[in-house]
Design a protein around this nucleic acid. Structure first.
Length: 242
DNA sequence: GCAAAGATTTGCT
DNA sequence: GCAAATCTTTGCC
């Protein structure tokens, strides 16, 4: 599907100059709408982290893979057991970051969607590096990665290709230096150091495909197979090769 | 209060 | 292709 999603044409062209170009914040109303529509609109949008002066350059990624988790009924969603200390922000307003720790070692970034009445969020599973690839590589080195050194036997690890720097939910967080302290951050606020920006006007809307979600085999079949994972099929940065 | 599993990634078999 | 690494949250006793 290549039709323009709801986010293709923001009702209001909010913009501000950044490095000669004009960056547009990602419209909150798109995230406030139905989650599956918001998921499609989020593909092609930018995840931006401002430079950390003296520490890291500005990092920008093109979102190419997201998963939707919606409602109390979704047996694969963290919201399935109602509000808890961990998932509480999912029950709040749209555009807010929800970051959780999974498998005791990886953080995953979610964007809260829909009104407070319904708990829903989009898991950002992969982005294509657009700017600051070196900073992403350094951040991943700091994060350490899943399995620690030990068996490397002193060998020099193979350098990570740019396209694979943030090709997975845990890797997105690692590459952008995102952790649970970012939970509650407003990703639609241009003043936030970590935020979403709309796809550049001169960039065509991405092709979109839908597949079942990944890593949720614990959920009942109906929920495990529903096609709520949305990808840009030709991207070299998907979490799984296609 | 304790045991089990998880929206993952990696390196070795 | 499989299992380890690692710790928080959930579920059951």
């Amino acid at each position: 599907m290549t039709d323009d999603g709801p986010g293709a044409r923001p009702p209001q062209e909010r913009g501000w100059p950044v490095g000669g170009a004009v960056a547009r914040s990602f419209p909150r109303e798109v995230l406030a709408a139905e989650t599956l529509a918001a998921a499609r609109a989020l593909l092609g949008a930018r995840l931006v982290r401002d430079a950390l002066p003296g520490l890291a350059a500005r990092r920008v990624g093109r979102i190419v893979e997201v998963e939707a988790y919606l409602g109390l009924d979704d047996r694969a969603s963290h919201a399935r057991m109602g509000p808890t200390d961990r998932n509480r922000v999912m029950f709040g307003p749209p555009g807010i970051a929800y970051v959780y720790l999974v498998y005791g070692m990886h953080c995953c970034l979610n964007v809260v969607t829909e009104a407070s009445a319904r708990p829903a969020a989009l898991l950002v599973r992969a982005v294509e590096p657009v700017e600051g690839a070196d900073a992403m590589r350094e951040a991943r080195a700091v994060a350490g990665g899943g399995r620690r050194s030990a068996a490397t036997g002193g060998r020099v690890p193979r350098p990570i290709p740019n396209a694979r720097l943030a090709a997975g939910p845990g890797l997105v967080a690692a590459a952008f230096g995102i952790d649970r302290t970012h939970t509650g951050l407003d990703l639609c606020d241009p003043a936030s150091s970590l935020r979403l920006e709309a796809r550049p006007p001169d960039e065509p809307a991405p092709e979109i495909a839908a597949t079942p979600r990944i890593g949720i085999s614990y959920a009942p079949e109906a929920w495990a197979s529903v096609p709520w994972r949305f990808i840009v099929p030709r991207s070299p940065s998907l979490s799984r090769r296609s």
